[in-house]
Design a protein around this nucleic acid. Structure first.
Lengths: 342, 342
DNA sequence: TAACATTATGTAATCGATTACACGAAAGTA
DNA sequence: TACTTTCGTGTAATCGATTACATAATGTTA
């Protein structure tokens, strides 16, 4: 029914060559004004649409960029992607989504697939930072495809990154708990091979030390980012000789679980026990007992990553710029830790 | 540094033609076994990767599919996209994301852009159903690109859709409130030009009538899907001569706002007042006073949409199949409406 | 008017892969 | 031995656009 209209069809109709049509459509100054107008009018009337694939093949640029995340149905990653899409759309780029489900092999496959698909850049949040196998990453770099890490990054030369200052995030959350009068603060940490969790932990530790409090290993519990894990952690913590009176959790979900378990045990929040989480998930502010949390400004992170990509893509290919953007975390103080103001 | 390796490079090295290389790589049976092995080995050693753009241009299939949603950072849409990605990834398709921000013009632009980019199919949730301007949609259909609506659909011949039974969703939620002993149930509705909201409303109405209750216009309030809107609605409802004792909200966010406002006024939930929402947003089950809500199984909706696409794409192009898949909603009963069980 | 500059357009290669058709060589058949 | 298949590979067109180079048409100058 609708045959594809190409520049050859236009050329034939006007008794000129495809080259002239192409030039006319691209506003090449060497084309006579009358010809240009004729071509433009004819193209419109024939409902011509440029075939981007042909253009991509010729130019070597697909105008697609790939985004790799552990999973898309998390508020954080979805917001980052939103930021990326909004920033790149005006520049004519389309965003291709890939998920790793925290599987390093999936991550590798995604990288190869995206390069195969000739994307013009890859923005990603790394899944397994500890994995020594950086083959796929170097493969990307060899192809001179800009690679940008956001949130979770890996230390690879030539790769830019956009992260938040997780150390500071851990620090201000912990400092806040101290300021609220908490004397013994526990920490629910995440996978320490990931810099984000490591730094949140280090920020927590430093805040304790800077404020004359002692740091003890047994108050740090490694948890998965899940409600159940938070409950279990509280159970463990309350068995300690000296029970803590506050928790700084590197995950909002674990913080929620902790709160649920504390309530179960009739421990009053924030009076007897304060809790702060990390990520500022939407639910933290919806709760009746709203949860204090560190915001990571995911939308801004996405936009910034996109901007870094745009900078890289314009540069001469031979120059490797390595830009490290670090965004500031922001503590949202809510009921779960507001003794003074409530 | 890393020049792109093409089949011509392999051909030159082996003193054969690119055609033979292509055939060997594609397991064409006409190729001598020894030649095939040689080519495969050489290709591997030269680190050859097929250029998908060239393939796409030749075959007319990009192996990309476009997904258009109002916004990606909503749990519902993100989950649908997750489902789509997981179902299509094994089939070699990449997912391109577009957002409309509820702007019909953006929606049109996205449609044209995706077709320009030669996607093999478009899966979308419609932004403005009332808009009579279906030009972009027909443009897609003329190009014989499979178009599938999910959740929010528009009635266009030749277009398949995957939705949930919103009527039933509204019905079972309302029936549940009736069963809990509520005598006067209000409804927070959404944009009635969207079938999903219209049907939730109709289900609500029918449940009332089927159970000997009277339906009154003044108990139906049109709200935006936002917390504030829910609060305002409660304020309005409580001013009525006979105040309602329950709310069925077509949005979880409005339901949350309603609950907050009711609590503010010291109305006890669920004893004096029951509330049920729609969408089963993550926060509904996290609340201390968890919120009853209708689940739309977004992941399943995404997977199903992808499957419908896969069916369409294989068929001969001339046959227009129009498949309407309707998923069953599921009511998750929680504290905000559990008088009997709690 | 001859010589030259300028302008607009045509010719053909290119991007990288696929594939209908052609063709030579080997194998099978009479 | 002569003829027909079969097999494996080469030739060249194709997908749709861009662009270096060639060339025709027009204008300018001495």
């Amino acid at each position: 029914m609708s045959e594809k209209i190409t520049i050859y069809d236009i050329a034939k109709k006007l008794n000129i060559t495809a080259a002239t049509v192409s030039r006319a459509l691209n506003n090449n100054p060497k084309i006579k004004e009358s010809t240009r107008e004729l071509v433009l009018k004819t193209a419109a009337s024939m409902n011509y649409k440029q075939n981007k694939l042909a253009l991509a093949l010729k130019s070597g640029r697909s105008n697609n960029i790939g985004v790799i995340v552990p999973r898309i149905d998390s508020n954080f990653f979805a917001s980052v992607i939103r930021g990326i899409e909004e920033e790149l759309q005006p520049h004519g780029y389309q965003v291709i989504i890939c998920q790793t489900h925290e599987d390093p092999q999936r991550e590798n496959e995604n990288l190869y697939t995206l390069i195969d698909a000739q994307v013009d850049g890859i923005l990603m949040s790394v899944t397994d930072v500890a994995d020594e196998n950086t083959g796929a990453f170097h493969y990307v770099l060899e192809k001179n495809v800009p690679l940008i890490f956001f949130d979770r990054s890996k230390d690879i030369s030539g790769v830019s990154s956009v992260t938040i200052n997780d150390f500071k995030g851990g620090y201000i959350a912990t400092k806040h708990l101290i300021d609220e009068g908490c004397r013994c603060i526990a920490h629910l940490s995440g996978d320490q091979s990931l810099a984000i969790f490591k730094n949140r932990f280090l920020g927590y530790k430093q805040a304790l030390l800077d404020n004359g409090m002692t740091f003890k290993e047994e108050y740090v519990i490694n948890v998965k980012s899940a409600v159940e894990a938070g409950k279990d952690a509280v159970e463990t913590l309350l068995k300690l000789p000296i029970a803590p009176d506050a928790i700084f959790s590197s995950s909002d979900f674990a913080a929620l679980g902790a709160i649920q378990e504390l309530k179960e045990r009739n421990i009053s929040i924030p009076k007897q026990f304060c809790v702060a989480g990390f990520s500022n998930e939407p639910f933290t502010k919806f709760m009746e007992l709203s949860i204090t949390s560190v915001d990571q400004s995911p939308l801004e992170m996405g936009k910034m990553s996109a901007r870094v990509f745009l900078e890289q893509v314009d540069k001469t290919e031979t120059i490797k710029i390595e830009k490290k953007v670090v965004l500031a975390p922001e503590l949202h103080i809510r009921k779960s830790s507001s003794r003074t103001s409530s």
